[in-house]
Design a protein around this nucleic acid. Structure first.
Lengths: 215, 215
DNA sequence: GAAAAAATCACCAAACCCGGTGATAGGTCC
DNA sequence: GGACCTATCACCGGGTTTGGTGATTTTTTC
């Protein structure tokens, strides 16, 4: 059973030459070729391809948005993005939308066939240059996610409990009830927390706690 | 000027065979080869390599931790991870630590040379299988990061300004000064904000605003 | 042009928050 | 055993926040 492939690209020449290229390998079968993505979901459903070759730059709907829709409708379809630009944001957005690989148009002739085979083998083919961008973004993102505790304010465990209550919007009185201690004791803890966090109000405590993930 | 390379791997045979392999290309020069990473920072500083080939599995210190230290000390050093496992978490951790590429030990013979050349060219070489894991993680992570605005509380622009002040820890009185309006006007806005956000206190406002990225 | 929404301001009373200043009791560390 | 930290509780007084109620002007929307 041959691998079913669909192309979306507004450039007729590219669609044609990709068609020619695929014909040289009998394991591939071009089952659809469209100049725009306005009806892409219906078309993909009708063609039922294993692999979609998607151009990023297209009139009407954006190729990235199309990826999102196709992946939503048919999650098991593999999508290989093709583009002339190695634009950081678009690479990133394509990935988030669900693309499985990334090929530069300048490399279509030499790389398309092996890339599709990589996809078939469960891989995510992309040029090392693209991969570098992906890794860069990944590092950036991970740095945001888990900014190290760095600043440890040495709160006692009790103080952390009180802090958690504050962040959850409880008043001092409610915290007293929650933790079964007196209102004044809560106040003592709060004062200590303010001191240790170098803040002077509830709002600053909440902001700092949430922002620096003190819980 | 040849490309300077350093190897870290506890397996003597692998270190030797990589050394042999690199000798076949006169543009590469093996300037260091170590069986553990306990002194890796000093060693890398002494050897001053362009590329470090790092084994993940090693006695004593973990190869990933070593990457972190080396990248901290010498940020411009390119690091190519080598491993026998395609373990998701370790791939991810390596990337976050600062690795620039990823090669399977089973592919050392055929791929090491081109991979190092990719690194030299500013790329991030990795097998399509590894790339798939990276993309998967990336999609997962990005889904966490940008939970869509979803809940739009339809705050007016003025209310958003006041909200921003609150989140930054300003008292109502200070906000009045900041925005050049009266204290009572600030209160009106605050009341509206509470109503729209379905909250009843400053702390809840700050928590909700930060958590749902309302700014 | 009328209705709706946004932005502005005002007052009262109750509740709440916060700084300062203290005290007591239990645990840890040297 | 004494110094130190943590957890507990208490009072005062000033300042802040909050709910309720209401008003005027400007801008937006239909």
């Amino acid at each position: 059973m041959p691998l079913r492939i669909v192309i979306f690209d507004d450039n007729n020449n590219i669609r044609d030459s990709i068609g020619m290229l695929l014909k040289t390998e009998e394991q591939f079968e071009l089952v659809g070729s469209f100049p725009h993505v306005l009806d892409c979901v219906d078309e993909v459903k009708a063609c039922n391809p294993d692999v979609v070759l998607m151009d990023i730059e297209m009139p009407g709907m954006n190729g990235i948005e199309a990826v999102r829709l196709i992946k939503q409708a048919m999650p098991h379809t593999e999508i290989l993005m093709q583009t002339v630009f190695e634009d950081d944001d678009r690479v990133f957005d394509s990935i988030c939308a669900g693309a499985s690989g990334y090929i530069l148009k300048s490399q279509l002739n030499t790389r398309l066939i092996p890339f599709i085979k990589d996809l078939q083998g469960g891989g995510s083919p992309m040029s090392p240059t693209i991969a570098r961008k992906v890794l860069g973004k990944m590092q950036e993102v991970s740095a945001v996610i888990r900014q190290e505790p760095g600043s440890d304010y040495k709160l006692s465990s009790r103080e952390k409990e009180v802090l958690a209550c504050i962040v959850n919007g409880l008043s001092h009185k409610m915290i007293a009830g929650e933790l079964n201690i007196s209102y004044e004791t809560v106040r003592s803890h709060v004062k200590k927390i303010y001191e240790k966090l170098h803040v002077v109000s509830i709002s600053q405590v909440v902001f700092k706690a949430v922002n620096e993930k003190l819980l």
